[in-house]
Amino acid sequence: MSDETYPADLRYHPEHDWARVEGDEATFGVTWYAQDALGEVVYYDPPAVGDTVTAGSSYGELESVKAVSDIISPASGEVIAVNDKVSDAPELVNSDPYGDGWLIKVRLSDPSELDALMDEAAYRAYLQGLAG
């Protein structure tokens, strides 16, 4: 397991997904909070390269021994890469949620959607609200 972190260079969706934006492309994954809530991830059901993902909608599933969790897309676009390492070793989502545990890369269709996402401070405040 990893320590609770929320990197400053990411954008956050309220369903506990992150986006790392590089030009008109972005890498998506789930946050430390999401993997902690789910527990040890044992299965990743990814989308296919070429699939379209839509902001706020599920693009795949992560499963622990006990539960299934939809993965919500923080922005819309076309899938250009899927992290096969996570398919083979789903526990990477727990051990390195922002690094080797990334889930998909997407070519963004509407980068303005990113404006609706939270920065680190806003996401931390949002988590505080959930705990309260």
Binding site: G39, E40, V42, S64, V65, K66
Partner: peptide, 8 residues
């Protein structure tokens, strides 16, 4: 308690 270190 549902788990401590992990179900597996």
């Amino acid at each position: 308690p549902v788990e401590y270190l992990g179900v597996r």
